[in-house]
């Protein structure tokens, strides 16, 4: 299962925009395209931490507004864990 599919499952409860979620891609913007409330972005960050067993620091969370940036953060933290 790719990271984007896991991310799609994580995001599901926080968006009412099911069509945009079905069409999720690296270019999807969590706030603008999926209309996720900014107070729920932190839930996605916490869910990502739990799902992938990583810790997301503030500087990384700072960037997590798009699917692309979120995947980059997950990959970076997974690589740090492995290394």
């Amino acid at each position: 299962m790719s990271i984007i599919n896991d991310l799609k499952e994580i995001i599901k409860p926080y968006t009412e925009n099911k069509i945009a979620l079905e069409n999720i891609s690296e270019d999807t913007d969590l706030l603008k395209d999926l209309n996720i409330n900014s107070a729920n972005l932190v839930d996605i960050v916490l869910d990502v931490e739990e799902k992938f067993g990583i810790t997301i620091d503030d500087a990384s969370m700072n960037k997590m507004l798009t699917v692309k940036a979120t995947i980059a953060v997950i990959e970076e933290k997974l690589a740090q864990n492995a290394g």
């Binding site: 900014s38 972005l41 700072n62």
Partner: peptide, 8 residues
């Protein structure tokens, strides 16, 4: 600039 860092 867009960012998500409420602690700032």
């Amino acid at each position: 600039e867009r960012f998500y860092n409420p602690k700032r």
